[in-house]
Design a protein around this nucleic acid. Structure first.
Length: 289
DNA sequence: CACTTGACCTGTCCGC
DNA sequence: TGCGGACAGGTCAAGT
């Protein structure tokens, strides 16, 4: 899915588009995409006004005036796209084909607002979901009780990263970075990118890292995530933001999807291998075990 | 408990 | 052109 920069890009876009709009209807075509009762939907969603759009880890939270929230996880292929039905995009416009063709066969949930605009939740692989629940209960969900710190928060620093990682001494650093209970928001793209930046091999066991490596890894994580947010995230196959636009980070990525190309630091050919059960990109010269 | 693997789904690409 | 298998940005449950 969308990782932290992609979800954050959607969040900031949605914030500009749907705040203060009133929800009048919701439809869905796949029950697991919207696992909520019709009664709750009628009582707490219909007629509700959008108050705020938040993000925690890779989860989006749309708060409603009814003290309920829509909790949304895009998983691997989820999209959340806003479309004003009164606007038609002409041929040649960058968003032409995508927005004018909504809904399409991957559309799972459609939320309609009182001004005839709509929010489309598309999800080809059907892993994602939209859950309606009381805002106050979100923090009691297992995921939110266990999830690690936000890497871009002002309280996060290299010592906290070290302390969190030290809970997973015998696993690889790549598996640990992907573990949302250690640190929130990192996925396969930004794990590979930050490990390359820190010159750490993804298979390195956490117990073999030293303080110098923790410090540089911390810096690289923050740097890579911030850069990606500036570039609107990474579009590999499916990702688009709330306005239907792709992100451009992958044009600047150092190793992710760059197998067979030269390492920008040393020129060695970048390889793709498997670590923690995931496709993993690295420079075999810069990142040694 | 720590850690790894399979399952959830659809679509695409690659080798035969 | 068709078919099987591997793989794809994430997270759980179930296994060792």
């Amino acid at each position: 899915m969308p990782e932290l920069p992609e979800v954050e890009t959607i969040r900031s876009g949605l914030e500009k588009l749907i705040i203060s709009k009133k929800v009048i209807n919701l439809t869905f075509d796949w029950p697991k995409s919207y696992p909520n009762s019709l009664n709750d939907t009628k009582s707490f969603l219909y007629g509700a006004e959008i108050i705020s759009v938040r993000r925690r880890a890779k989860v989006l939270l749309i708060d409603l005036s009814t003290q309920y929230s829509l909790v949304i996880h895009l998983k691997m292929t989820g999209q959340l796209v806003y479309k004003d039905e009164t606007v038609r995009f002409g041929a040649g416009h960058p968003n032409d084909s995508l927005l004018n063709n909504l809904p399409d066969k991957s559309t799972r949930v459609i939320i309609s607002f009182d001004d005839d605009s709509k929010l489309y939740f598309n999800d080809q692989r059907k892993f994602g979901w939209v859950k309606l629940m009381p805002t106050i209960e979100i923090k009691n969900l297992d995921f939110f009780k266990k999830v690690g710190p936000e890497p871009l928060s002002s309280e996060f620093n290299w010592l906290i990263l070290k302390q969190r990682l030290n809970k997973r001494q015998n696993t690889t650093i790549k598996a640990a970075l992907l573990d949302q209970t250690i640190l929130a928001g990192i996925g396969n793209i930004y794990a590979d990118e930050s490990l390359w930046g820190a010159k750490i091999h993804p298979s390195t066991l956490v117990k073999n890292l030293n303080d110098k490596e923790y410090k540089i890894l911390y810096q690289e994580i923050v740097k890579v995530l911030k850069l990606s947010i500036e570039l609107g995230g990474s579009t590999d196959k499916n990702y688009i933001n709330a306005e239907g636009k792709k992100g451009s980070y992958l044009a600047f990525s150092k190793v992710f999807r760059k197998e067979g190309q030269h390492c920008p630091r040393c020129g060695t050919i970048i390889i793709k291998t498997r670590v923690a059960g995931r496709g993993t990109h690295l420079c075999p010269n810069c990142q040694k075990l």
